[in-house]
């Protein structure tokens, strides 16, 4: 089931990339990043069956980094929403020349 897992992981990662490129809502963008992290986790778990349990340990690290990223990222989104009343990325253009 290794090949199937890796193919599924590649598909999910691609769907996440397409989501990041097509959406403008900052919260949905964050969720697409979570989907990409999940896709990579699936590869780690599938390969850990072949190469020892180190892959699963790495998945735990990825999950804690994802949790930290979600907390800080959503706090930033709330702070931006307070200023702009919007989470649309087109409205956040302060640095646009």
């Amino acid at each position: 089931m290794l090949a199937e897992s890796l193919a599924l992981s590649a598909l999910l990662f691609t769907i996440g990339v397409i989501g990041v490129l097509t959406r403008r809502n900052a919260i949905i963008l964050f969720m697409c990043v979570e989907l990409m992290l999940n896709a990579v986790n699936l590869s780690f778990v599938a390969l850990s069956k072949l190469h020892g349990v180190g892959g699963q340990v790495f998945v735990i690290f990825v999950m804690s980094v994802a949790a930290a990223e979600a907390a800080v990222g959503l706090a930033i989104i709330i702070a931006i929403f307070r200023h702009r009343q919007s989470v649309n990325l087109e409205d956040i253009n302060l640095l646009k020349g």
């Binding site: 089931m1 897992s5 599924l8 999940n38 986790n41 699936l42 778990v45 599938a46 850990s48 069956k49 699963q56 998945v59 735990i60």
Partner: peptide, 13 residues
């Protein structure tokens, strides 16, 4: 994905 992890012998994950 959780179901797939269990099927790949990673029950804790």
């Amino acid at each position: 994905l959780a179901a797939l992890y269990v099927m790949l012998d990673a029950q804790f994950i």
